[in-house]
Design a protein around this nucleic acid. Structure first.
Lengths: 346, 346
DNA sequence: GACTAAATTGGAAACGTTTCCAAATTTGTG
DNA sequence: CACAAATTTGGAAACGTTTCCAATTTAGTC
């Protein structure tokens, strides 16, 4: 006696319970306008048949799928993974499923996935576009109809109804970190960050420079090194940087790969941290926490980003399109550890 | 003149093209049994109206959603993140979307998500059950109808039609690592691993013990330390372990958190790696690669796991249920770095 | 108990596709 | 050119729900 693979339809339940399909639907969903007798019989019949409603059919009729999309460049990037994880947790609690897709920063794929989400009629989406200049993606997002929450990107200023967004205060974080280093006596500091095409990089650079400006220090000491996020490349770059005649006495490095590249380069050159070189990590990864010496780091809560994004989206899905916060700005803290000290050379 | 939010239906296209809806469907999909004239007119009409087919309606009719589920304990865990990423990439290339869900190793949630996937009629799923003993999950998976690919877990032996699985040869990896340490002269080695409830842990322990057995060494020197994957806990555990009177001269530690805990404990006790303590990481994380000294590590390709799983699932979805590989066993390599040496004390 | 209002119910029409079937057209063959 | 075969086409029936509407039952009031 094999298990039936849940072929029971609402019509079967109706027949078994001796009521109409409409009544079954009402009994199972709203529970409103249903007599006790019908409710009981329907419940019994559904139980007996092992009835599982078909979300597809329901979605077709109700125009809502109970699924939201999440579009980032790479879920395996720790900086995204925790965001995705936290967002999924919150959305699941609300009964929603999450569809993820990686864009690998390919604009074409980005737009294709937005279209795919739309075509599947997902109820909404969380998106971190790969580039702020990708106009077509932004246009697609704007003209979609379904709610979109932006993850740490600046939405173009000309949007008529700007999407809600969760932003991280990278500018303040970078300024704090730079201030701290300047306070220790550093005058030549390198900021290692991937391109300024996206908000986080732009904001960090702005904060970095602001700290120099407000300290009234020679701004030539603010070395902005743009680079891709590949570890080997970062290492080569960092090597070149640290071999300059006027090498920086401190480095602010993003994430895991670039930080790792910088640390390796320092090690290869025999520079000790923090004596010869101070290091601050942007993003509090396992690597920063566990490295010897432990790396002072800028930390913000990825979980909060994911949670806030999910919350904003849920709010929109509930129809509160106008009211409520539509921008969240999350703080960045400087976690002091053992990788910074006064510069050795004057 | 606002953009129409893609409200055009197949009926609109049919009207515009002056043909029947059936012809439109044929023209847009198969292209088979369609005259050149109709094909041209339909394409033109679809283009003009910006027609986007509704996957929901299509799914309802065709009984296939073009979506697959992915169920792991935590997508933010680097050991899963890359798997998910790679699987998504392969599935997307095949035109499928991926729904992810985290179970947090909660059996109830695990089963709920499997049910949710089923109810949404996802075409198939990739699953890493949280525990091999979770019979009810396994039963749910088996009686589902849609194809399931298991990620690095042993499927119960009593399955009539066992699901395909992607397995990693952790046993061989652990044996190789242990052999290597024994070859260096170590006789007391600790294996730090989370519980043996799941295949990877079980296999590693087996390989670990096998190496001792084949070397004909006192098996009492094989110290298996089960622990949860929390860093702090691991650190405390590692401290206790390294303070025993007969402390191990080498440690094999899983992942990022446990490895980090072990390294910190060693540092706190003033033990230098590799002089006082040899360390092998299980899983080649950023931490292992970048640590000073760089940590010798067991490496397997998470990307291959994800890719192979997606491949297996696609194969099943194409209907090749019988033929073809249904088990993939991926190799584990030992990456030699600077964290191992002969034991100091004899 | 009659009448009105409210609540419940059954039946059918959507939702937007794909696919079946029969009718109509084109193609092929002697 | 007639006839059969093959191809193309339109119309309608699914797919499994929810929801509208009218019909019916129940409750409420004088």
């Amino acid at each position: 006696m094999a298990e039936i693979v849940s072929k029971a339809t609402i019509r079967d339940v109706a027949r078994t319970a001796g009521v109409s399909v409409g009544s079954v639907s009402r009994a199972l969903n709203g529970g409103k306008n249903v007599s006790a007798r019908v409710a009981r019989d329907v419940a019994a019949a559904a139980e007996k048949l092992g009835y599982q409603p078909d979300f597809l059919a329901r979605s077709l009729r109700t125009r809502t799928t109970g699924m939201v999309g999440c579009l980032v460049s790479d879920v395996a990037n720790p900086l995204y993974a925790s965001i995705v994880q936290a967002a999924e947790a919150r959305l699941r609690d609300a009964g929603l499923l999450m569809v993820v897709a990686n864009t690998a920063n390919d604009p074409a794929r980005e737009r294709a996935m937005v279209a795919a989400f739309r075509s599947r009629r997902l109820d909404g989406m969380l998106v971190a576009p790969g580039s702020d200049e990708n106009d077509r993606t932004w246009r697609d997002l704007a003209t979609g109809g379904s709610p979109v929450v932006i993850l740490d990107r600046d939405v173009p200023p000309d949007e008529e109804t700007p999407s809600p967004a969760v932003l991280v205060d990278h500018r303040d974080g970078a300024r704090t970190a730079t201030r701290y280093l300047i306070g220790l006596g550093h005058r030549r500091i390198a900021l290692l960050t991937p391109g300024a095409r996206m908000r986080p990089g732009r904001e960090r650079i702005a904060g970095f420079k602001a700290a120099f400006a407000e300290a009234d220090i020679d701004p030539a000491g603010a070395l902005v090194c743009l680079q891709e996020s590949s570890m080997d490349f970062a290492q080569g770059d960092a090597l070149a940087l640290l071999q300059r005649e006027q090498r920086p006495t401190a480095i602010i490095a993003l994430g895991t790969r670039i930080l790792a590249g910088a640390l390796r380069a320092a090690r290869d050159l025999g520079l000790s941290v923090p004596n010869d070189l101070s290091v601050i990590a942007v993003g509090d990864t396992d690597l920063a926490a566990v490295h010897s010496p432990a790396i002072t780091a800028l930390r913000w809560s990825l979980e909060d980003v994911g949670r806030a994004a999910a919350e904003l989206l849920l709010q929109r899905l509930k129809g509160n399109s106008g009211e409520g916060q539509s921008r969240a700005l999350l703080p960045v803290d400087l976690v002091l550890r053992d990788s910074c000290g006064p510069p050795a050379v004057k």
